[in-house]
Amino acid sequence: MANEPRDPMPLEEPMFILENGEMYRNQTEVKMSQIVLPCHANYCGELSAGQLLKWMDSTACLSAERHAGCSCITASVDDIHFETTIGVGQVVNITAKVNRAFTSSMEVCGNIF
């Protein structure tokens, strides 16, 4: 009996309910989860800020590219607040979505939890 190729599971798009009750899907929302390994940590066993910024940038870039349909780069970052440390073995969940789009640039917002 030959193995038949299976269809990949469809990705579930995030759903939002507007005030008027209509359903809305944000096609630019990207969610990424990363487990913190020892190679991602500093000498204290905490996730290095540089690694976290790299993951954030990758997630935001995917969101921007999904919106634009072409390659995108990060031009600037407005503000970042580190509230707590993340240790080895913990999972970092990052979300990003395009808030506003202009002629040749866009604003991407991200959250980490």
Rank of each mutant, 00 (worst) to 15 (best):
V98D: 07
Y24L: 05
S58W: 06
G89R: 02
V91Q: 07
A64E: 04
L53M: 15
A41L: 01
I35M: 08
V88T: 07
G89T: 13
H40G: 13
A64W: 03
L11K: 03
S58D: 11
N20W: 11
E107N: 05
M32Q: 10
E83H: 15
I73E: 06
G21H: 00
C61A: 14
V30M: 11
N99C: 06
T95R: 14
D79H: 02
V108C: 11
R25T: 12
L18E: 13
K97F: 14
E46Y: 06
A60F: 03
N20E: 15
I73Y: 10
A75F: 05
G87N: 10
C70A: 01
V77C: 12
V92M: 05
G89D: 14
E22A: 11
S76E: 04
N42L: 10
T28C: 00
C44K: 13
L37N: 09
D7G: 09
G89W: 10
E65A: 12
M56E: 11
I112V: 14
E65C: 12
F16R: 07
G45M: 09
T84F: 11
T84Q: 09
N3Y: 08
S58N: 06
Q90C: 06
K31D: 04
M56H: 07
L18K: 15
I94Q: 00
W55F: 05
A49N: 13
I17F: 09
S76Y: 03
I80N: 02
E19M: 08
T74F: 01
I73N: 04
E65N: 04
I94W: 01
G89Q: 14
H67T: 14
R66C: 00
L18I: 05
L52D: 12
K97S: 12
A49P: 00
M106N: 07
G87W: 01
V30F: 06
A96Q: 04
R25L: 07
I17D: 00
G69M: 13
A60P: 02
Q51V: 15
I86R: 02
I94N: 01
P10K: 13
Q51T: 14
S58P: 03
M32K: 13
V77M: 08
L52P: 00
P8W: 09
E19G: 08
V98N: 04
F16G: 00
C39G: 06
V92C: 05
V88K: 01
I80K: 06
G89C: 09
T84N: 14
S48L: 03
F82I: 02
N3S: 10
E4P: 02
N26F: 07
I17C: 02
F16I: 02
L62F: 03
D79P: 00
E4D: 06
R6E: 11
V77E: 03
P10L: 02
C44G: 08
Q34D: 08
E19R: 07
V91E: 10
L11N: 01
S104K: 06
Q51M: 13
M23L: 06
C109M: 08
T84I: 12
C72A: 14
K31P: 11
